[in-house]
């Protein structure tokens, strides 16, 4: 009887201990899918065929079935939020692309080269064609739940030989003189009026007004942004390691096609609360001065009236 008690109690303790020890170590992690490269720039000719490949990797601990697809690539607004739904003359390439292995198993910790072929029809619009190659890791399907599909895209920028027009202009450049902490930014807005995309190279140089030291300069690693045809893009050049307060000279240079635009300005960086305190003090001072002047003139007019 005692032995039975002993064994039973030991088993209960052992079982409880195992539950607490084992559960955390078997916590499930999500699926991780990677694609490379993140974009391609390709020159195509009408009637020709082009073959290339992209790499997808399963960086997680579980095998999954990948699936490849092609979607149109356009943008929604000047911030270049992508639009993978809208189709127009610049997204016909979606119908020309096929994958050698559009779906299959991707074991954990492996990568796979996915070949794709672009068959360009003979009668296609001149200019650019844009699409995104999407690799997805289908999620779990349970009744009564919402499946979350993780996917990554590689953007295709293609130029079709023929009557291509690279045209664009700078709409505006701006450096705000008062900025509330990190990051300090300089803006430029550029419109593409041609029928192919072009790249904008942006550099930013920031120097201290007091002392003239260069505190940030990205001319060694400038920013590159692509502007699609029939679109306008707002480009921000930023400096993130901004001190809480300071006075700086900011110079931004934007280069695209055969154009260069330089804009400079003095920027006061200070916390928002400090700006509010200073603004409040200034407003109070103005009110006091106005009150003093009004009182002063009223008293003078009263004195004149009493004299007369």
């Amino acid at each position: 009887m005692n032995k039975i008690h002993f064994i039973a109690i030991s088993l209960i303790f052992t079982f409880a201990a195992n539950i607490f020890l084992v559960v955390p170590t078997f916590a499930l992690e999500g699926v991780t899918l990677q694609i490379a490269p993140t974009s391609h720039k390709i020159a195509l000719e009408p009637g020709n065929e082009y073959t290339d490949s992209i790499s997808i990797q399963n960086l997680g601990d579980n095998d999954f079935e990948y699936k490849m697809s092609v979607k149109p690539y356009q943008v929604q607004d000047v911030f270049y939020n992508p639009d993978f739904v809208t189709e127009n003359n610049y997204t016909q390439i979606v119908r020309w692309i096929t994958f050698a292995e559009p779906s299959g198993n991707l074991p954990a910790h492996t990568s796979k080269e996915i070949k794709y072929t672009i068959k360009v029809p003979a009668d296609v619009p001149d200019g650019g064609q844009y699409a995104v190659l999407v690799a997805e890791a289908p999620g779990q399907i349970n009744p009564g739940s919402i499946e979350i599909i993780g996917s990554v895209g590689s953007i295709l920028y293609t130029h079709i030989g023929g009557d291509t027009r690279e045209e664009g202009n700078l709409v505006s450049s701006r450096i705000w003189p008062l900025q509330f902490g990190s990051p300090v930014t300089a803006e430029s807005t550029i419109t593409n009026t041609g029928n192919v995309d072009f790249d904008v190279t942006t550099t930013i140089n920031i120097t201290k007004i007091l002392g003239g030291n260069v505190v940030y300069d990205n001319s060694e690693t400038p920013l590159f942004h692509t502007v699609l045809p029939n679109s306008t893009r707002l480009i921000l050049a930023t400096w993130y390691e901004t001190p809480k307060i300071g006075l700086f000279k900011v110079t931004q240079v934007s280069s695209f096609l055969d154009q260069n635009s330089t804009i400079s300005g003095v920027v006061l960086v200070c916390p928002f609360w400090l700006a509010m305190v200073v603004a409040t003090i200034i407003v109070l001072l103005i009110i006091l001065i106005v009150y003093y002047l009004v009182s002063h003139f009223k008293n003078r007019s009263k004195q004149r009236q009493s004299i007369s």
Partner: peptide, 9 residues
């Protein structure tokens, strides 16, 4: 390259 991890699903 770019990767995405979704959790939970």
């Amino acid at each position: 390259a770019i990767s995405i991890t979704i959790s939970p699903d």
